[in-house]
């Protein structure tokens, strides 16, 4: 089988998934394209569960035509396929009608997300669309092998589909969408070059704080970095949150712990119980670093899905770079 032109183009420009995992898009497309099955599915993921990210909403508001175009290209590339646009509740209310209109006769269904943050995770999303409990699935099989109703399924972030349309028209300029927030003057969503450093992004959007600061990059599960570490492009989810040293880092951790404790699926021991204990410790204001280290160890080593494995990163980097450094 020859490789379709669009997949060759995706490979040539090096497009990576914009949901945060940065998996090469062309590879997913090729797997699903080449999978042998009578029926295949495409999912456009606009769950946007990260509390700091706003770019999917921004794209739905300003560029829905391109998003539909991107899905249409996928539908044409992958035989016998059907598509779903998976929208978080507020986007569903706001954009459903507009998307139905734009989709015209294309086999695209608009579905509403159930559940919280985790329902944006790709295997959990499959369960939600199938009407099952919002819980992650064991991998393998991967969605490209057996996704929706056991059929090969291509799942891409909404922004990825937007750029597929651009690449198709040879109008892609190696950019991405960033959501900037926190202690800055001009928060918002910006389309900027991929290779800009975080420092340059803050400068060019006129968001560089006057006093020293630290940042969380890549979303609520992203790493904490110091202002001295901003001379590199952003990895993961396109989210930058700027914090000032006036803020209480414990309060910041408490916010994360609350969020993770509420948003996890409660299925595996380290995540269900470990995250609860992190929250408990922070709430009580008595942080036992030995205990934290143990919990982080099992979260990273033994969690069932990436969620649990990623929980320790923001805490560990904040503790190391900010809390312990202050002392």
């Amino acid at each position: 089988m020859s490789i379709p032109l669009i997949i060759q183009k995706l490979k040539a420009v090096g497009l990576k998934g914009r949901g945060g995992a940065e998996f090469p898009t062309w590879q997913k497309w090729l797997w699903v394209k080449q999978a042998r099955a009578k029926k295949k599915f495409i999912v456009c993921n606009a769950a946007e569960g990260d509390p700091y990210s706003k770019k999917d909403g921004y794209l739905l508001n300003h560029f829905p035509e391109e998003v539909i175009k991107g899905i249409e290209i996928a539908l044409r590339t992958i035989d016998n396929s059907q598509a779903f646009i998976y929208l978080r509740q507020d986007y569903y209310q706001k954009f459903r009608n507009k998307l139905i209109k734009l989709a015209k006769n294309l086999p695209i269904k608009i579905v509403k997300k159930r559940g919280g943050y985790l329902s944006g995770e790709e295997t959990t999303l499959l369960n939600v669309i199938e009407g099952k409990e919002a819980q992650p699935r064991l991998r393998p099989p991967y969605p490209a092998q057996a996704g929706l109703w056991e059929c090969p399924t291509l799942i891409n972030n909404l922004e990825t589909f937007y750029f597929v349309a651009k690449i198709y028209e040879n109008k892609y300029k190696q950019t991405r969408f960033y959501t900037l927030s926190g202690k800055i003057k001009n928060p918002g969503v910006y389309q900027l070059p991929l290779n800009w450093t975080i420092q340059k992004i803050l400068e060019q959007t006129n968001n560089l704080p006057k006093t020293d600061f630290f940042l969380q990059v890549g979303g609520i599960m992203g790493e904490i970095i110091l202002s001295s570490e901003t001379n590199k492009p952003l990895k993961g989810l396109g989210v930058i949150v700027v914090h000032s040293f006036q803020e209480n880092p414990i309060k910041l951790m408490r916010g994360w712990a609350d969020f993770f404790n509420h948003e996890n699926c409660d299925r595996c021991t380290p995540c269900r119980e470990g995250v609860f204990r992190i929250e408990e410790m922070i709430k009580k204001g008595k942080i036992n670093f030995k205990e934290l280290e143990d919990i982080f160890f099992v979260l990273k080593q033994t969690s069932l899905c990436p969620f649990g494995r990623m929980v320790p990163l923001p805490f560990e980097s904040l503790i190391k770079k900010i809390i312990l450094r202050k002392k």
Binding site: P270, R277, F297
Partner: peptide, 16 residues
């Protein structure tokens, strides 16, 4: 490493 992981997860199970 296996022992450590099992031990902590068991303690978390007993914790609930």
């Amino acid at each position: 490493r296996i022992r450590r992981a099992r031990k902590i997860n068991l303690e978390l199970i007993f914790a609930q």
